[in-house]
Simulated scan of single mutants.
Amino acid sequence: MLRLVVPALAGLALSASAALAGGAPCVTCYREAVHPPVYGTYHERVMTRAPRTLTHVIPARYETVTETVVVAPERRVWQVSLDPYGRRIGCWVTIPAQYETRHRQVLVQPEEIVPVAIPARYGHVAHPVLIEPARRAWVPVGRPVYKD
């Protein structure tokens, strides 16, 4: 009688595991698995410094000019003098012109304001982007799974 009981208990154990797997014998079994999210990288060109304009001032340039100017022009004057005998004698006398050398500053080039354009500076920034969110799925039992 013992020989009949052992095969009957083995059949009960198989039917219990089949019942846990959905009531039928498990031909292809699946289990629930969690797949992690998939991320990619998005590269973006960004401005790191805005364009700007600076002004460069070139100062005025002066030079010293030396010139000879007439202080008193040439002239003729009537001059009366006494001769050796005491008589008065009148003559026209030419007095030469008087000159002086003078120095003065002359503007050669006026002050200039030159605009200097500094272009914008650009760089690249990498942003992580979600391509596929995390998900739960049923996978075959023999297949490797990331996380339960």
Rank of each mutant, 00 (worst) to 15 (best):
G86V: 09
T66R: 12
Q79C: 10
E44T: 13
R45Y: 06
Y42H: 15
R31M: 04
Q79S: 09
A33E: 03
R49E: 08
P59L: 00
Y99N: 13
Q79D: 09
T66C: 07
D83P: 04
R104Y: 15
V69M: 05
L82V: 08
P36D: 06
R88C: 10
T41A: 14
G86Y: 08
V108L: 04
Y42W: 14
P51Y: 06
P37W: 14
V77F: 04
G40C: 07
L54I: 01
D83C: 13
V77Q: 13
H43F: 07
R49N: 10
L82W: 05
V106E: 13
E74V: 15
T66G: 00
E32G: 07
H43P: 01
Q79M: 05
V34K: 03
A72V: 13
R87I: 04
P84V: 13
E32A: 11
V38M: 06
G90Y: 09
Y42S: 15
P110A: 01
W78E: 12
I95K: 09
L54P: 01
G40S: 08
I89Q: 12
P96N: 08
A33W: 06
T48M: 04
I89C: 12
G86R: 07
T64P: 00
P37Y: 15
V38G: 01
Y62T: 01
Y42L: 15
P96H: 04
R49Q: 11
V77H: 07
S81Y: 15
R104V: 03
W78V: 10
T41V: 13
R52K: 06
T66E: 12
R102S: 11
R61I: 00
E63K: 00
R31K: 08
T55M: 03
H103E: 09
P59M: 04
P59N: 02
V108D: 00
I58S: 00
T28V: 15
R52L: 05
A72I: 12
Y85W: 09
L82N: 03
V106L: 10
H43V: 15
R104I: 05
G86S: 05
V77R: 08
S81T: 14
R61F: 00
P51G: 07
Q109H: 03
